[in-house]
C-alpha cells in the first residue's frame, strides 16, 4: 500500500520529539488543548456506543487506535479513561519518547512505529474507535490516509479527526500568532496550504464510505488561557467524527 507519510514533516517533528512532554515546550498548545479535546472525544465515544460517561474509567472495554500519536498525549489520557490503546506514529523518536513516558506513568499502551497503512491488513476492522488528532494537516495523501483509518475501524465503530481549518483566521492564529508572535510552536510546524477544510475532510470520509457525524470547534479563550469546545466557531481548530 502507498505510504501517507510526508518525510519532510517527520524530520521537522523529530527535531523536537524529545520535548513532547514539556508542558511549556514546542508541543505546549497540544498540552493545553488536550483536556477539552479529550472531554469531547470521551463524550462522543460514550454517546456513540449508547453509554453515559460516568466515573473515571468511562472507556473501559473499548479498543482505541490513535494514528499520529506523537509522544502519546492523547494515548495516555485515553488509557487513563480505561481504553485499551494502541498508538502509532511515523516518527521513531516520538514513539521512543511515548514508550518511555507511558512506563513512567505506569500505563500499559501498545506503541508502534510506522504509518497507519503498516497495520493493514493484519489489524483490519480491529478497533472500536480510531482517532487522528492534529495529523491530517501533515499527511501526503488525505484520501489514502482516511481509507487506512477506516479500514482499521470496526464496522459500526467511530472515527474522530481533529485538525486546523483552512481559513484566514487559521492563518492568522495557527501560523502567524502561534509560530511568529506567541512562539507557541516552532516556525514551520504547519503549512497553511495543507490545512484541511471541513468540506474536504467530509468528502474524504464519503469516499471511504464513512458517514460524517458531529463537528465542533475548539477555540482558545484568551481570558481563561484555556481552550473550550464551541458549537459554532470551527474556523480555526475543529473536531469531526464519522461512523463506519
Amino acid at each position: 500500500m502507498k505510504t501517507t507519510i510526508d518525510p519532510e514533516e517527520i524530520s521537522h517533528f523529530a527535531m523536537d520529539s524529545a520535548r513532547w512532554w514539556e508542558e511549556n515546550g514546542p508541543f505546549g498548545p497540544l498540552h493545553r488543548m488536550n483536556p477539552v479535546r479529550m472531554g469531547f472525544i470521551r463524550d462522543e465515544i460514550c454517546r456513540h456506543f449508547g453509554e453515559k460517561p460516568s466515573g473515571l474509567r468511562p472507556l473501559a472495554g473499548r479498543t482505541v487506535l490513535d494514528i499520529g500519536c506523537g509522544g502519546g498525549l492523547a494515548c495516555e489520557s485515553l488509557a487513563r479513561m480505561g481504553a485499551a490503546v494502541t498508538g502509532i506514529d511515523a516518527d521513531a523518536t516520538a514513539i521512543a519518547v511515548a514508550i518511555d513516558h507511558a512506563g513512567q506513568s505506569g500505563l500499559d499502551i501498545a506503541y508502534r512505529h510506522g504509518g497507519a497503512e503498516s497495520l493493514l491488513p493484519a489489524q483490519a476492522g480491529r478497533y472500536d474507535v480510531v482517532t487522528a488528532l492534529e495529523i491530517v494537516e501533515h499527511v501526503s495523501d488525505l484520501d489514502a490516509f482516511v481509507a487506512s483509518a477506516a479500514a482499521l475501524c470496526k464496522p459500526g465503530g467511530l472515527l474522530v479527526f481533529s485538525t486546523l481549518n483552512q481559513t484566514a483566521r487559521s492563518f492568522a492564529l495557527g501560523i502567524v500568532a502561534a509560530e511568529y508572535i506567541l512562539r507557541w510552536v516552532p516556525r514551520g510546524t504547519h503549512r497553511w496550504r495543507k490545512f484541511v477544510r471541513p468540506a474536504v475532510l467530509a468528502a474524504a470520509f464519503r469516499r471511504a464510505e464513512l458517514s460524517s457525524n458531529a463537528i465542533k470547534g475548539i477555540v482558545f479563550n484568551p481570558f481563561s488561557g484555556e481552550f473550550q469546545v464551541s458549537d459554532k466557531d470551527i474556523a480555526v481548530n475543529y473536531v469531526m467524527t464519522a461512523v463506519k
Binding site: 498540552h31 479529550m38 470521551r42 468511562p58 487513563r80
Partner: peptide, 22 residues
C-alpha cells in the same frame, strides 16, 4: 483534580495545578 481525571489527564501536571492556583 476530579475534572482533570475525568478527561484522563495527569492530575499532577502543571496545567491542572495552574487551574487550582488561578
Amino acid at each position: 483534580l476530579v475534572d482533570a481525571a475525568k478527561t484522563g489527564a495527569d492530575i499532577g501536571s502543571a496545567l491542572v495545578l495552574g487551574r487550582y492556583e488561578r
